[in-house]
Design a protein around this nucleic acid. Structure first.
Length: 666
DNA sequence: AGACCCGGTTTTTTT
DNA sequence: AACCGGGTCT
């Protein structure tokens, strides 16, 4: 151990010397395997660096090589932190680095801001005044807590619509993530609820108190506590910061104010930071992300070295031209020009179909054609603005026996029946979890909100407890209906069994209820099996629950049945979930004014600009072929109108950039 | 009084 | 598909 420390110091000095490093000392030939800009980014060691990496310019490759190089330079892998947008992205990068160099790369600390905060806060809990066994609320859980509060006396009035739980949550969360007051958020996004501003504040107060009292942290709290810990600069902060030599942040354009503060806080000691991103691909403003964050990065950090990656390795020239055209209209950006050494390529095709179903049929046929031409399904994706756009297509694909996996939209963990099962386990892990108690109690016949509340009161008075067997609690004479429930909770709370055994007990108890409440229980019951399989990967219930909250499993029963036997499959994905990925052929569907851009976004230039960036992200996913389709007659229930105009992003496009086609319905 | 059922409304995007 | 509110049943 000591030897390593000595070695670290010596190498750091070498790095500071003005002489260029002797490249032959490295196992990897960085200069040869990277282009000039990539090499510049990869070989940057100390200081603050901003890498502007256009779509397909080898951003991931650059990060992977930099990780390897830092390790080769002798820095301890666990002093390097890599923050990414999803845990999947982090794992993929660390794996690639491990393959490139060796296993030391897998020891790098990586993950999302949220998972990083989770680990840090549990470890340094006493410095942030937290119980380390805190429970994490995902968005649905947070909404449920807020709903509980919403139903308190005095909030809902009969005269005027009171905001629902989603709206309440969104406003509170946006206020935290963008550092603005509730008043401001309401003025900007929900002026019709301005009358309720005081009630929002009341609910916020009660919500915060509830979380504190019951040892709960929501997504935003994870970031807030981490930021405060970093700013506090107590003994814990110092120890923690000393353990970090290098910080890398991917997808920086999608960070919000809170996350920018965290980056700043993490760099307080040595200021070795590299952030990577593309202002043209910022698509998360609804979560408080702001592309201005990346524009203002140099202002916030002072002396920043800006590196631009502009050579695109992904797409043919024709697709790049088209994407650049979409991007040309953005009004504020770091100027960068993407170029490629893959000249030519077929022009993107814009195809008008009679209606939605013809659009679907066209895509099915085209996919079959492409497969004939030798393009595997694995290399094809259909992308869309909103998850429900693909419903009709999904039916047509099933008819044609084309296997697909859908990304984005409802997640496995959000399905009602999975949340039910989780609620039992969460009570076992944290008997103070009132929301889970409510959920579980309401599953039972004859128990509604009032009775549930009564039982919860008895719990807090300790007349009822899952810490001892219901057999020895006299109060159960009144509640003999709930004997089975309490017996189950008593067992899974007190027994030292594995999470999977506990889950099995829960499912056994839950199954009859489940069959009773869901008409489609047959379809759903597969999910319960999948859930039980997942639980086998865990030793600790607490770990399992926080993992599931921070990093939801994407697969649902539909996906499994499609991909189960290692078959190749077509990808259906929201554009948001397609971030960072690429395919030979990409279809973008529903490019209709009102759907994409969504007419919800038509109110402001900012939101419209974001829709434009979405189109940019979608079209830069394609390597060889790009098809953009739109139905000419599309009824929209929300506005009650039939939509017929092509998306403004593709109408009036220069014929040199894309071909327009009309689908012949014969 | 409280549970339950029904029908109209609302849904972007995700850690 | 899930939510919300109102009306009806126990």
């Amino acid at each position: 151990m000591e030897q390593k420390k000595y070695k670290l110091k010596r190498l750091a000095e070498t790095v500071q010397s003005p002489k260029p490093l002797d490249e032959s000392r490295f196992l990897i030939n960085y200069k040869q395997e990277l282009n000039l800009s990539q090499y510049e980014a990869v070989s940057a060691v100390e200081g603050v660096h901003l890498v502007i990496a256009g779509a397909g310019t080898g951003k991931t490759r650059t990060l992977v090589y930099r990780v390897a190089r830092l390790v080769e330079l002798g820095y301890e892998p666990d002093t390097i932190v890599l923050l990414t947008f999803t845990r999947k992205a982090a794992n993929e990068m660390l794996n690639r680095a491990a393959v490139l160099l060796d296993n030391r790369c897998a020891k790098i600390r990586g993950g999302t801001f949220h998972s990083f905060a989770n680990v840090t806060l549990r470890k340094y809990s006493k410095f942030v005044n937290l119980d380390p066994a805190f429970t994490i609320l995902d968005q649905g859980d947070s909404e449920d807590v807020i709903n509980l509060i919403r139903n308190y006396e005095g909030f809902i009035s009969k005269e005027k619509r009171f905001p629902n739980k989603q709206t309440l949550f969104k406003v509170l969360s946006l206020s935290v993530n963008t550092n603005r007051s509730i008043q401001e958020i309401l003025e900007e996004n929900y002026p019709h609820f301005l009358d309720y501003a005081d009630k929002f504040l009341d609910i916020q107060k009660i919500y915060q108190h509830h979380k504190k009292k019951n040892n709960l942290l929501d997504y935003d709290d994870l970031l807030v506590y981490l930021r405060d810990f970093l700013n506090d600069m107590n003994a814990g902060t110092k120890t923690f910061l000393r353990g970090i030599n290098f910080l890398m942040v991917d997808e920086y354009q999608d960070t919000n104010k809170l996350q920018a503060d965290i980056v700043k806080g993490l760099g307080q000691f040595n200021n070795n930071i590299m952030v990577v991103g593309d202002d043209s691909q910022s698509i998360y403003s609804f979560r408080g992300a702001n592309y201005k964050n990346i524009m203002e990065f140099p202002k916030l950090f002072g002396k920043v070295n800006i590196i631009k990656l502009e050579e695109n390795y992904r797409s043919v020239q024709s697709i790049l031209n088209f994407a650049n055209h979409i991007n040309d209209h953005a009004f504020e950006k770091y100027t960068k020009v993407l170029y490629t050494k893959k000249p030519g390529g077929k022009l993107p095709m814009i195809i008008a179909a009679e209606n939605e179903n013809y659009q679907s049929k066209f895509i099915v046929e085209k996919i079959l054609d492409l497969r004939e031409e030798g393009i595997p399904l694995q290399e094809i994706a259909v992308l869309f603005r909103s998850s429900f756009f693909s419903f009709d297509l999904e039916i047509e694909l099933s008819k044609a026996n084309i296997p697909f996996v859908k990304f984005g939209g409802i997640k496995f963990i959000e399905a009602a029946h999975i949340k039910d099962v989780l609620a039992f386990l969460r009570i076992a892990s944290n008997p103070k979890d009132i929301v889970s108690w409510f959920r579980v109690l309401l599953l039972h016949d004859g128990i509604g909100p009032k009775t549930a509340q009564k039982i919860l009161d008895e719990l807090s008075l300790a007349k009822l407890s899952i810490k001892s067997s219901p057999d020895v609690q006299p109060e159960f004479k009144k509640h003999d209906k709930l004997y089975g429930l309490f017996n189950l909770l008593y067992n899974i709370h007190t027994q030292k069994t594995s999470p999977s055994e506990k889950a099995a007990q829960v499912v056994e108890y839950y199954y009859p209820i489940f069959k009773n409440i869901y008409d489609d229980f047959n379809k759903r019951s597969k999910d319960l099996d999948i859930f039980q399989n997942i639980t086998e990967n865990y030793r600790s219930l607490d770990n399992m629950l926080s993992d599931m909250a921070i990093e939801p499993i994407i697969e649902s029963a539909v996906d499994i049945s499609a991909s189960g036997n290692e078959e190749e499959f077509l990808t259906l994905s929201t554009i948001h979930s397609a971030k960072g990925l690429e395919w030979n052929t990409v279809f973008i569907i529903h490019a209709v004014e009102g759907f994409f851009p969504s007419y919800r976004s038509a109110e402001s230039i900012e939101t419209l600009e974001e829709e434009r960036r979405l189109m940019y992200v979608a079209s830069t996913r394609a390597k060889q072929n790009l098809f953009i389709t739109y139905p000419m007659n599309m009824f929209d229930r929300e506005s009650g109108k039939t939509l017929s105009k092509p998306s403004r992003f593709i109408s009036d496009i220069n014929p040199e950039l894309a071909e327009g086609w009309l689908l012949d319905t014969d």
